Amino acid sequence: MRKYSQFACVDWSGAKTERPTGIAVATMNQDGPPSLLAPHPRWSRADIRDWLLKLAGARTDILIGFDLSMALPFFDMNAYLPQWDASPTTPRDLWRLIDNICDDDPHLGSSSFVAHPEGKRHFRHSKNHIGDLFEGGTGRLRVVEQHQRDTKQAKSASCFNLIGAAQVGKSSLTGMRMLHQLDGAIPIWPFDPIPESGPVIVEIYTTVAAWAAGLPKGRSKTRNRAGLVQALKTLGSPAPARLASYDDHSTDALITAAWMQQAAQDERLWKPPVMTAEIAEKEGWTFGII
């Protein structure tokens, strides 16, 4: 099984601003402890893209987890965007469609896609603005997202829901723009084969790491040093340097980077039984869900 010398978690954000407070990046080597990469000013989404391209150019041996969905649901309706003639049939074509429509949106934003005459039909935009093709309730889910819920491994939200604290639609759409702009520079599991060396990107869910670190369900965030140190201790990781601020984006990234260092060696997580080749090809999978 492939070995990695470094691990990184990117806690992503779909906020409209250039440098969202919700982006945090933590890295860890085989010995630990995890540490934050905290540039001044804050990270932008374009900064993250450029950092990834540098890792690709240097062939850095690193596993990078992104807290976002890397595709829209497909199998529930045999289409990513039903009733739209331009609906793609592959994730990369989906990323291209979103990026092209949002070409004029600053900061890798996604506003133009959810405002597009066809695109907007699929989303819940607000309590009083719901597209006619939004499925209602939770919204459409990918196979892995429904599986997470059915098995109580996590409680994923639908990418088609754009409201509420737990919404992941905006972050996922902006993330898909970024993935398209990488232009294949870094393999993305499970869409691509895993190379023998160099960087690899996976989709992760920070709540899975938090639960593995002993944080209770329903209270999977920690916002103080004591909670962070205890979570990392549960994962067998040393305590990090003191942080300027213990916001949940930073602590999520640190805990998840430490979890990835362990999880990467668990062969079951790379071969989840429910993930067929077709699911891997069309919808992808969340690393850590079995």
Rank of each mutant, 00 (worst) to 15 (best):
154 A>L: 11
150 D>I: 13
94 L>M: 11
84 W>P: 04
115 A>Q: 12
140 R>T: 05
64 I>P: 04
125 H>E: 00
78 N>W: 11
103 D>Q: 05
51 W>A: 01
189 W>M: 06
96 R>T: 05
167 Q>T: 04
158 S>K: 15
104 D>K: 13
174 T>V: 04
164 G>K: 15
133 L>R: 15
190 P>C: 01
98 I>V: 10
173 L>F: 09
164 G>V: 05
127 K>F: 14
53 L>N: 01
68 L>T: 08
137 G>W: 14
138 T>G: 13
178 M>H: 09
130 I>L: 13
181 Q>D: 02
183 D>R: 13
56 A>P: 09
87 S>G: 03
51 W>S: 00
121 R>M: 07
127 K>W: 14
145 E>G: 10
165 A>S: 09
133 L>D: 03
109 G>L: 02
107 H>G: 02
120 K>T: 03
149 R>P: 12
61 D>M: 06
141 L>A: 15
74 F>V: 03
83 Q>S: 06
91 P>N: 08
145 E>C: 12
117 P>D: 12
177 R>K: 12
146 Q>R: 15
139 G>C: 10
168 V>T: 08
122 H>D: 01
55 L>K: 14
65 G>E: 00
179 L>Q: 07
55 L>H: 11
106 P>Q: 05
47 D>F: 05
161 N>G: 10
133 L>S: 04
163 I>Y: 09
99 D>L: 08
92 R>C: 06
93 D>H: 12
117 P>H: 14
152 K>Q: 14
115 A>N: 11
101 I>M: 12
128 N>K: 14
100 N>K: 14
129 H>D: 07
132 D>W: 05
82 P>R: 15
63 L>H: 10
77 M>P: 08
111 S>P: 02
84 W>C: 03
176 M>L: 08
178 M>Q: 11
170 K>Q: 06
185 A>M: 04
118 E>T: 01
53 L>G: 00
74 F>R: 15
151 T>P: 11
82 P>Q: 11
176 M>I: 08
58 A>T: 03
124 R>S: 04
147 H>P: 05
187 P>Q: 08
139 G>M: 10
163 I>Q: 13
71 A>C: 12
